[in-house]
Design a protein around this nucleic acid. Structure first.
Length: 579
RNA sequence: GCCCUCGUAGCUCAGGGGAUAGAGCACCGGCCUCCGGAGCCGGUGGCGCAGGUUCGAAUCCUGCCGAGGGCGCCA
């Protein structure tokens, strides 16, 4: 019940040991998909190198001792010393049934179950969510779903920006505008104009600046009235974030919010503990740590500032408190930070200091799941025509509108209700899939027409294939669950191709988790769907040659649909039965 | 100046030690008495440059060129 290649790899590894004994240590069988057969063994060449024997001779020896009778219908030495493997159709059929009847469609569970914190989304209070937050939110949410799927315990943490000097001006602006008016402004999601209003006053009025600074002091010293006003801003903002999260269909809830302010009480302890370990030094009036290996412009050691010269703490301290909290209180062993690439050095420094201080010892580790920018057609940061940042809310609304007009055109028979729901699923799915389907480390180009196209590696294409399969079962009037234990007969090349793809769900998901790269799962789902479309074109299901063939193909269809559905679900995307 | 990331087809992207580098769009040509043509099948076209490691390099290493980002009291 795993990818056939994984299954066969174990057999080949055994054969390596039989042939080479200790020389096989550390030699990866490297069984991979192949254009020349179902799979090819590449490791035979490396083993031959280790043994100092001709590669083809070694490959022949491997084949003599490898136990492949029940899994391969053919195995032969090829080229310079590869071994080409062809899986037995009966083996594939057995694996398909195992996959179909398993709870997780053939995906192996994690062998070591961990507690994982995923830090993602992280919008700022009283600031509009924009496309920059889209990536963190969408990628983080997909990783959360995948980690849970393989059995890990996942703790979502939304590190909201709810503290710092800007709150002085924001609170003063709130006082000027009145609480009722501010609440109204924020509740309709007009966070940007509120922020800009505060900023404008701050820039124009010296009196306002003084009030703002005084307010920051009041906030940090715990003034009751100031805290009340601050909480008002936080509450209205998080309520608004939640509406975006619901539209986007992500798992984040209010309970997942762990804003920067959550760590305020821990900050003095961070400094204290660092000091006790002799890591803290004073530099230009600030308390800092110099982790090794980091330098500034002048090639001088680069500090992580723990306590500013004015006595205040900053985000580095808060991030360290965060590490302590996640490791010591939450007992998480893996900390994922789904944060943009520009913060790479900062996070490296935080990790370095946390390790030096002994707070982040193996098996505990933190990983920066970094990502690039969203670019417009001009290859620059995505902006509106007038040069403003694009509000996430507006972006999602446009996605649904565009999808709605496409649905209305392609499927006018749907009821108005069904149409708007499907438009939501397609529009939001398209935006999320576009973000997830390219390597997160690179910038990606935002293009409405491409992401909403029904051709190519897009969510509408996957959703369409899924809907077609659902349509087959409606027409056949067959209960989906009733075909799930049927052992399929693999005959047609397109059936075989599809069967192989379906069975790769397991390794596709694990490859994805290995690098925390959702685009690998997307690529897999697209390949699977392409295989299905080809199968569907060449192999009649409802008009099959025999009842057995029909049942066999229905089984394949059901399993394919379930894998597409599950795969999209792991990406946080719905798959409607009709569209 | 130092550090990090990225350069693959005209465009948007996969592939990140394995045989002949794959898709989609665009362009050219096929397929509707057919389960959803929102589809399928085929064709044209490419690894920034130069070294190195390796049986084998788009992939790993070094240098150069180009693009983006970071480099002490904002978060």
């Amino acid at each position: 019940m795993a990818d056939p290649i994984i299954y066969v790899s174990a057999r080949i590894a055994d054969a390596f040991v039989k042939v080479a004994g200790a020389l096989a240590d550390g030699v990866d069988p490297a069984v991979r998909q192949s254009d020349h057969a179902d799979a090819q063994v590449n490791g035979s060449l490396a083993l031959a190198k280790a043994m100092g024997e001709p590669p083809r001779d070694v490959a022949t020896k491997i084949l003599e001792v490898a136990e492949l009778a029940d899994v391969c219908s053919n195995a032969e030495v090829a080229g310079p010393g590869f071994i080409n493997l062809t899986f037995a159709n009966e083996f594939l059929a057995r694996e398909l049934v195992a996959s179909s009847t398993s709870a997780k469609l053939g995906v192996r569970s994690a062998t070591i179950l961990r507690r994982v914190v995923v830090d993602y989304s992280a919008p700022n209070v009283a600031k509009e969510m924009h496309v920059g937050h889209l990536r963190s939110t969408v990628i983080g949410d997909a990783l959360v779903r995948m980690l849970m799927y393989v059995g890990h315990t996942v703790i979502r943490e939304n590190h909201v920006g709810d503290w710092g000097t800007p709150f002085g001006m924001l609170i003063e602006h709130l006082v000027d505008s009145g609480e009722v008016s501010t609440a109204e402004e924020l509740s309709v999601g007009d966070l940007d104009s509120f922020y800009r209003g505060a900023r404008k006053k701050f820039d124009e009025s010296e009196d306002f600046q003084n009030r703002a600074r005084a307010r920051v002091v009041a906030l940090q010293s715990g003034d009751v009235e100031t805290l009340r006003l601050w909480k008002l801003l936080v509450a209205e903002s998080t309520r608004y974030f939640q509406t975006i999260y619901r539209t986007l269909g992500v798992l984040l809830q209010d309970a997942d919010v762990m804003g920067e302010s959550s760590y305020n009480s821990l900050l003095p302890q961070v400094a204290k503990r660092l000091n006790e370990q002799g890591l803290l030094t004073t530099s230009d009036g600030a308390d800092v740590v110099f982790p090794s290996g980091f330098t500034n412009r002048e090639n001088q050691p680069l500090p992580l500032i723990i306590r500013k010269s004015d006595g205040g703490y900053n985000y580095a301290t808060s991030d360290l408190a965060c590490v302590i909290d996640r490791v010591e209180r939450l007992d998480a062993s893996l900390l994922l930070y789904v944060v943009g690439a520009p913060q790479a050095q900062h996070l490296q420094m935080v990790a370095a200091v946390a390790k030096q201080a002994g707070w982040l010892q193996p098996p505990h580790s933190m990983v920066h799941v970094s990502f690039g920018n969203v670019l417009g057609a001009d290859r620059k940061m995505l902006k509106t025509r007038s040069g403003d940042t694009i509000k996430l809310d507006a972006l999602l609304t446009e996605a649904v509108e565009r999808a709605a007009s496409a649905v209305a055109e392609k499927n006018p028979d749907l009821s108005a209700d069904a149409r708007s729901e499907i438009a939501r699923i397609i529009g939001i799915g398209a935006v999320k899939y576009a973000d997830l389907s390219t390597d997160r480390i690179k910038d990606y180009t935002f293009d409405w027409d491409r992401m909403l196209s029904f051709d190519g590696n897009t969510s509408p294409y996957l959703q369409y294939a899924h809907a077609r399969i659902c349509s087959i079962f409606r027409r056949a009037n067959v209960d989906r669950a009733s075909v799930r234990k049927i052992t399929p007969t693999i005959e047609h090349p397109a059936e075989r191709e599809l069967a192989m793809r379906v069975l790769q769900f397991d390794s596709a998901l694990w490859d994805t988790l290995d690098k925390y790269s959702p685009h690998r799962l997307c690529t897999y789902l697209y390949d699977l769907t392409t295989s299905f479309s080809s199968f569907y074109e060449q192999c009649s299901v409802l008009k099959a040659d025999s009842d057995d063939q029909r049942r066999s193909r229905l089984m394949l269809c059901d399993l394919t649909a379930r894998v597409i559905h599950a795969g999209l679900d792991l990406l946080g995307i719905d798959a409607p039965e009709q569209m």
